[in-house]
Structures are given as structure tokens and as C-alpha cells.
Simulated assay, not measured.
Amino acid sequence: MIRFVLPLMALCTTSVHANENIADQYPGSALYSAPVEFIPGVFSAIGATAPPTYENSGHNNNLSFIVTGEGVVVINGGGAYVLAEALHEEIKARTDQPVILVVNENGQGHAMLGNSYWAEQGVPIIAHEDAAAEFEDRGFRILEAMQVLNKEKAEGTYLQGPTETFSDEYIVELGEYRIEVRYLGPSHSSGDVVVWLPKQDLVIAGDIAFHERMLPLFEDTYTLDWLETWDTEFEALNATYVIPGHGHPTNMDQVRLYTKGYLEYLRGKIGEHIEAGGGLADAYYVDQSRYAHLDTFEELATKNAGRVYEQMEFE
């Protein structure tokens, strides 16, 4: 198994490098931050650990790419045409290899709205069939919300789903890279996938794994299913290196702490609340203070508690 020495930024396990109060770390680009080479050939432009804003152009997730020697594979279309175009400029500044594939990690706007740019470049775009269905169903609302947020920076963005879908896995071998795009099971949102590089012992985890910011729970995020997928499939990868969907590249211990650990902790607190006869109104305020240092805590903690209560009430 190939091992690499990680840069200082990647080894950091605190939130010192991620601060939701920093509006933009890369003023010369629409991207929130410039791509950094995490291990040889694998780059990621780390998004803001904050909600999408006009200042960060909606770049609040990680946009990654792999320079394989036989072409570049991009992971995430980006949250707008302008972000995909900016990422492509960064890729062209680092290699002459063309982009030959785009992977959408799920059906959310930050994964798919930039497909409009990549489709114009003639690049194939793949996604899980459930993510494609989600984007087809909700795409108009997602696009409209981005247009309100990004104003003139929304120009050029239109609804473009993947050009190809899969159900279980999509595998390509390019240069020294075996790239396995895998659906591991239900997790954060419909059709979430990971990109597993077994030779490099690295997983681009998408929204299955969070770091440095609090994860959000949607109405259709079933925490018990997410935990089962984590325990039975994600842990089985035994990855040394993790590029999460949000937050800086890190390791399994950190994403386990802030994803699986948080879900188990919140479910435990809500379970105690239900056992004591508590209702929904008070469930919003169960103690989550041990996670108060995470970015987006103020925006998400109470909402998450309410959604977990609504699920566990009927489990």
C-alpha cells in the first residue's frame, strides 16, 4: 500500500484553518480557496465551512480532482457555472491533461449546478441514479435559490443532470489510479457516493463524512440508516486519508468523531429525552454543547435535534 507524508494543513485536526467568519480566502477567484495537492495527483479546493453566501459564491463544499496522467477526473460539478469554470482554470494552470470525467457526489446544488459548465466542455458526467432523480425532482427550486443567493454570479448556470447514471459502482483505471465511485448505502442525502482510490488508500468521501463543521440533517436524512452504512460499508474501506464533503482533508478518526460520533451522541440525547417523556418543543434544546465549537453549530444544532426527535419518536 502506498503511503504519503501529508502536508501540515492536512494533518491539522482542529478548526484553526476553517473559520466560517472568513468570507473568502481566495479573492482572485470565484472559488473560496485555491486547490491544494493533498497527496500526489489529488487536489481539493476546500469550500467555506459556512452556509452558502454571495461572498463565497456558494462554494461551501470540497471540489476535488485527480490528475491521472491519462486525463483529469473532477469530483463535484460545483455549485454554479462560475465555480466550475474557476476550478477548470485552476486545473489548466497545473496540467495540460484534459478533464475527461466529472463525478457528482450527490443530487444537491453544490454537486450538480456546475454541470452546466462541464456539459458545454463535452465532458461526461456521472452520478448515482438516486442523485439524478433527486436533482430532476428538486432542480428548479435548487437553481432558483442559487440565483437569489449569487445574483449576477449565477449567470450561465442552467439545469444539467448527469449524462450517465449507475446503481452500485462505476470504476475506471487511469495511469496509476484505480478510481472506484461507490454507492455504499443510505447516508446524508439521496445517492451519496464516495470515490475510493485503493492504491492510494484515500477516499473522497462526499457528504457521508464531515469535518470542522456541523453536519445538517434534511427531512429525508435517516440517521439510523446513515449509521448502518457507516459501520458496515464506510469503515470497511479502512482509509488512511479522507477528503470529506466539508472541511479540510484529514483521517478516519476525525471524520468518525464529527460524523458518526455526532449522530450517535445526538440520538443518545434524544433517546433520553423521549424516555423521560419529553416532547418536540423541548427536544430542540437538548445539550449539544460539546459540538458548539463546530462551524454552522448555531444554524443547525436545534434543527438537527428536532429532526432526530421526529425520527426516533416512531422507531
Rank of each mutant, 00 (worst) to 15 (best):
residue 214 M to R: 07
residue 214 M to E: 08
residue 215 L to H: 01
residue 215 L to M: 07
residue 217 L to E: 11
residue 218 F to L: 08
residue 218 F to T: 14
residue 219 E to D: 10
residue 219 E to V: 09
residue 220 D to V: 05
residue 220 D to T: 05
residue 221 T to E: 02
residue 223 T to L: 09
residue 223 T to M: 10
residue 224 L to P: 00
residue 224 L to N: 10
residue 226 W to D: 04
residue 226 W to I: 05
residue 229 T to D: 01
residue 230 W to P: 00
residue 230 W to I: 01
residue 230 W to C: 00
residue 231 D to C: 02
residue 231 D to A: 09
residue 232 T to E: 10
residue 233 E to F: 00
residue 234 F to C: 01
residue 234 F to R: 08
residue 234 F to K: 04
residue 236 A to F: 01
residue 236 A to G: 05
residue 238 N to L: 12
residue 238 N to E: 15
residue 239 A to E: 06
residue 241 Y to D: 11
residue 242 V to F: 07
residue 242 V to I: 15
residue 245 G to Y: 03
residue 245 G to Q: 02
residue 245 G to A: 03
residue 246 H to E: 13
residue 247 G to D: 12
residue 248 H to E: 07
residue 249 P to E: 15
residue 249 P to A: 15
residue 249 P to M: 11
residue 249 P to Q: 15
residue 251 N to L: 09
residue 253 D to G: 04
residue 253 D to N: 11
residue 254 Q to E: 10
residue 255 V to H: 05
residue 255 V to S: 05
residue 255 V to G: 02
residue 256 R to E: 12
residue 258 Y to C: 04
residue 259 T to E: 01
residue 259 T to N: 00
residue 259 T to Q: 01
residue 260 K to T: 07
residue 261 G to Q: 13
residue 261 G to I: 15
residue 262 Y to C: 04
residue 263 L to W: 03
residue 263 L to N: 08
residue 265 Y to A: 09
residue 265 Y to C: 08
residue 265 Y to I: 06
residue 265 Y to K: 13
residue 266 L to C: 09
residue 268 G to L: 07
residue 269 K to I: 08
residue 269 K to C: 06
residue 270 I to Q: 02
residue 271 G to A: 08
residue 272 E to G: 10
residue 272 E to H: 03
residue 275 E to A: 11
residue 278 G to K: 14
residue 279 G to F: 04
residue 279 G to P: 06
residue 280 L to K: 14
residue 280 L to N: 07
residue 281 A to D: 09
residue 282 D to L: 08
residue 283 A to E: 04
residue 283 A to M: 09
residue 283 A to W: 06
residue 283 A to F: 08
residue 283 A to R: 11
residue 287 D to I: 11
residue 288 Q to E: 04
residue 289 S to A: 14
residue 289 S to G: 12
residue 290 R to D: 13
residue 291 Y to Q: 05
residue 291 Y to G: 00
residue 291 Y to E: 05
residue 293 H to K: 14
residue 293 H to L: 12
residue 293 H to W: 11
residue 294 L to Q: 05
residue 294 L to W: 03
residue 295 D to W: 06
residue 296 T to S: 08
residue 297 F to P: 01
residue 298 E to W: 09
residue 298 E to R: 14
residue 299 E to M: 12
residue 299 E to S: 09
residue 299 E to K: 14
residue 300 L to M: 02
residue 301 A to D: 11
residue 302 T to A: 11
residue 302 T to H: 07
residue 303 K to P: 00
residue 303 K to G: 01
residue 304 N to M: 12
residue 304 N to P: 04
residue 305 A to I: 09
residue 306 G to D: 07
residue 307 R to T: 14
residue 309 Y to F: 14
residue 310 E to Y: 04
residue 310 E to V: 13
